[in-house]
Amino acid sequence: MVHISDGVLDPWLWESGWAITVVILAYTLSKMKTEDVPKLSVITAAVFVASLIHIQVGPTSVHFILNGFAGVMLGILAFPCIFVALVLQCFLFGHGGITTIGVNAVNMGVPALIAYLIFKTGTKLDIRPETKNKVSLFGAIAGGVGVVLALLLLAAELLTTGEEFYETTVLVVSTHIPIIVIEAIFTGVLAGFIATVKPEMFGKK
């Protein structure tokens, strides 16, 4: 649902999507360290495959996005993660379009960064087995908010194609409720689990 295809948006919109994507990519990649790379590629693999898991909700088919999850796990590197996953999804699965990779990366990547901000502010990155509950709670909130924000961005962009903002928002958010709930629980449980067994995985960012 959240991958916009070629030929739907006006050129200025997907062009500015690319511009924003290139700027954020350049910044986040410059902050990348060697020890981040294995974690980054594993999470990217998960995000890449997640979009193949479909759930049929009412008249439409929705799939997992895992952008909030990527934000919690990777911090600012969630953006390159989403970008690479989108490029692979586009060329290998035919999801979305080539021209819209930029705008799709903004749609899912920026909410991922906001999800990280929520997680960071909520837990103050004080991640120890003792703070497990708090980590789970904010992980869950970040996981859910990531998806909701991605849907709002999508609805805002479709506004330019003449769709009603309110109508589209209600449609995409209501059909994505299962996705929002499942991703929130998934992210929360996993964040709590990692806080217990390997808290250093969140690192100091």
Partner: peptide
């Protein structure tokens, strides 16, 4: 798309390798 998934993992492994080299050089 099973072949797509496998290809994707291959690309990711390759990208990870390249990223490792670049970041290691920088460090």
């Amino acid at each position: 798309p099973v072949t797509g998934i496998i290809t994707g993992f291959g690309y990711l492994a390759g990208l990870a390798g390249i990223a490792m080299i670049i970041t290691a050089r920088k460090m």
